[in-house]
Design a protein around this nucleic acid. Sequence first.
DNA 1: CTGAAAGCGCTTACAG
DNA 2: CTGAAAGCGCTTACAG
Lengths: 343, 343
Amino acid sequence: MAESKARQVTLRSIADQLGLHVSTVSRVLNGRADDGARAASGDTATRIRRLAQELGYQPDPHGSGLRTGRSKLVGVLVPRLSDLVLAMIYEGIDEAAGELGLTTITANSRDDDKTRRVRTKMLLARRVEGLIFGDASLDSGFLDELAADGGKFVLVNRRAGEHPSVTADDLLGGRLAAEHLLGLGHTDVAVIAGEPYASTGADRTAGFVGLYRDRGLPAPRVVHSPFDTAGGRLAAERLLADPNRPTAIFAVNDFAAIGAMGAARDHGLTVGTDISIMGYNDTPLAAELPVPLTSVSVPMRDMGRRALQMLTRLLFGGEVRSERLPPVLAARASTARSRPAAL
Amino acid sequence: MAESKARQVTLRSIADQLGLHVSTVSRVLNGRADDGARAASGDTATRIRRLAQELGYQPDPHGSGLRTGRSKLVGVLVPRLSDLVLAMIYEGIDEAAGELGLTTITANSRDDDKTRRVRTKMLLARRVEGLIFGDASLDSGFLDELAADGGKFVLVNRRAGEHPSVTADDLLGGRLAAEHLLGLGHTDVAVIAGEPYASTGADRTAGFVGLYRDRGLPAPRVVHSPFDTAGGRLAAERLLADPNRPTAIFAVNDFAAIGAMGAARDHGLTVGTDISIMGYNDTPLAAELPVPLTSVSVPMRDMGRRALQMLTRLLFGGEVRSERLPPVLAARASTARSRPAAL
DNA sequence: CTGAAAGCGCTTACAG
DNA sequence: CTGAAAGCGCTTACAG
């Protein structure tokens, strides 16, 4: 781009200037700096490297890709990049990819199966070497097909079937949330559970509900919703309209929790006093909200990094085992004891 | 990936199966469906297209890219994708790119000049045909150099120098904000202005301050800060520590405004009653916050779309002129009349 | 230690 | 209407 076609620096242009053969130049430039001896005499190697550096030679990926069959491209499918959680995971993926000389291409599926298939096909047409899915659905039909076709991929954030994945331990995270609210004396609680097709929401909810059941307490109410603020607000409206409303709400996502905070306020309730609300993921916003939000912290960037590393192991024919990273509770002002002293 | 190398469908494999020459197959598959007549007999063309469809032929971009010199790749540099504003702009860019058969590659610069240069170099090494910068600095040294080297690019969200850009009219947006607060009777106001190197913050601030000056009012206080929640909170702390604190704060970014809301609460102030706070960009969160945030709405996705379209015009040698999209005020509960009746 | 050849998949004048 | 050739930039056995 910065160079017109005619001026592009190629192995040939370097070879010609040095009176060498392009294969020699290729060997030197591809060999690692230390074992250059294998490729050419020390002197020749030095001259080649110096000129390549001087001219700013960058190998044309079309040429090498065509020849080697390796694109050094990785495809990343997410529900939407404007979901902060996925954006942070993607940053982790891209960071780790860059360190390994890989480039990522991303696409949004909007959690729609048709879109997911079309976008995946586009990524494959680009000859990505492998894929990372951040939008897995518990109904894993598409992934099963892809795996059967020999597709190489790993999942991140959400698990599905037996496909290799890097997730947080959402079951544990749900239990941590339940322990926290129970510790504050909340026995009448509700869960804003997200979309039923996502393992994240399902597992967090199962962990949460499971602990209440284990303690012989009444089962928390569970209501589903989109993973965003508007969805959380609507779900909370339903819960708060009930005269017998819960004293605490666990939303499986910080943004849904923020929506729930808004609904609480509309009902004249002060969050952290009249009602406890907690979220999940501990996005950077949570700690900085006017009423700091209790949440469950998940290593999003690290999940992304690990997913990329797992994919490369898979591509090199190695064995991979799914990873579950531990979540950590982050208690803040939005949750407090169930019955204030004043009552 | 889904196919082992041996099984890859190529022009050759199609040609062989049909007893045709690969050039014939190429001509047919590249010609538009209607003028296939140019490429082969109707019958031949049909047989080729049918088989290609059946085998799921996807042209190898390494082959075509090498031959044509076109990668159909566009590079997008942003400060960080985990900034919702940039994520939404990027979604617009990617959407428009997909419609034109282009693929985007993105990278974070973190507003750091060194990183910006390194990442741009990587994108160029990937042979992107053009670049979109969402991280332009008012000190446009890097962009000037790139343009001098013949680099093809457009800017989005932030302008710099005379480089072609798609931005919102931030000067006007700043004036809209000032008119709104003035209309509510606020004469003692402050601006949380973001980073000084970004035209967005600078122009919004200039528009805002300009209107107050035009009306002969005392100049608003201006304090700089990062574009995130923590930055907004710190900046607001400084403003509110002053016993002579402003009655309204204009933050040039919604996330900074949310941070300011938190600081206000820490000072025992109720937002929308004791103090007015407004943001900018009207991110999806703004309307759903516990105290809905007054903001200035900017067509983020559309900016992205237009930037991509402008870039393609540039690449095809057309003339391009910078675009300024109009912002719209979105008034909500976080801003109210300066002196409540109660005082 | 270096060169020469082959070929990855594609497109595009050119010929017939 | 279709074929044949050339060549984009690269890598990799093979030869000497």
